[in-house]
């Protein structure tokens, strides 16, 4: 398994950090609304894929662009980045908020996407099985809601959060608020979701406390060419808790 190397790009004036490793068909991973859990898990893909993990603007090592107020700004950002990286066609994997973004990207630019994998994606308005309003949850309670087995997340968290850690989490929450504070769900997104024609895999942990696993079926109603894989005993960060979920993505994309 290859280690990631770090590239720094400037995309439309925004510092954009991209971690890449491995060789093979390109696999782009969109992270979720926080980056504290890191990308170690993705090393398992590097023996079969060229793995490309960008930090979204406003998260982790990438810079801020306070003019980004809409998920579509991120779609445009990635069109620019993929052109810059000369990535014409690639596999796209998105986690949570990154799943929302990946599905939106595929609904608009499906011809650029080979296969699509969505890990506990956000963005679905499902009144029967609503997503938890994570912006309303006190920061110190969030980690406990992300996983069923806290040990897998614990190693990514500082024993005692310092000001830098708190500041970084606050920054990422602020980025999310810019996008979702007033409208956590966008009915237009669902309206156009049927345009995703790519082979799609939807992965979920059956103990997800943030987005109920029942939403997997709702997603399949919108994306006809989708399969579902549910992992027992896993929470929202199913890819951290279940290595077999990471492997299932690789198998599906191969």
């Amino acid at each position: 398994m290859a280690k990631f190397s770090r590239e720094v790009h400037t995309v439309d004036g925004v510092k954009t950090v991209v971690h890449t490793a491995g060789s093979g068909e390109p696999l782009v991973f969109f992270h979720g609304a926080g980056t504290v859990d890191g990308f170690d898990f993705a090393e398992a893909w590097t023996d079969r894929f060229r793995v490309i993990v960008p930090y979204h603007p406003g998260f982790g090592e990438s810079g801020d662009d306070p003019t980004f107020t809409d998920l579509h700004d991120y779609v445009m950002h990635y069109l620019e980045l993929f052109d810059l990286l000369k990535l014409d066609r690639f596999n796209l994997v998105g986690l949570s908020l990154g799943g929302y973004l990946a599905a939106k990207f595929a609904s608009e630019h499906g011809h650029r996407v080979k296969k699509l994998a969505l890990i506990a994606p956000a963005g679905m308005i499902d009144p029967q099985h609503p997503m938890m309003d994570i912006l309303a949850v006190p920061g110190d309670q969030v980690p406990g809601l992300l996983v069923s087995n806290f040990e897998v997340l614990k190693k990514h968290l500082p024993a005692q959060p310092d000001l830098d850690f708190i500041g970084e989490r606050y920054r990422e929450a602020g980025t999310v608020a810019r996008l979702l504070w007033e409208h956590p769900g966008d009915p237009k997104f669902m309206r156009y979701l049927h345009r995703v024609k790519n082979p799609t895999l939807i992965l979920w942990g059956d103990e997800d406390k943030i987005i109920p696993v029942q939403q997997a079926e709702t997603w399949r109603k919108f994306i006809p060419n989708a399969d579902i894989k549910v992992f027992k005993g896993a929470g929202h960060l199913v890819h951290l808790e279940k290595p077999e979920a990471v492997e299932a993505v690789a198998k599906f994309l191969s």
Partner: peptide, 9 residues
């Protein structure tokens, strides 16, 4: 979220 700058926070 976002109400304060990170420095102010």
């Amino acid at each position: 979220p976002g109400y304060l700058s990170v420095d102010q926070l």
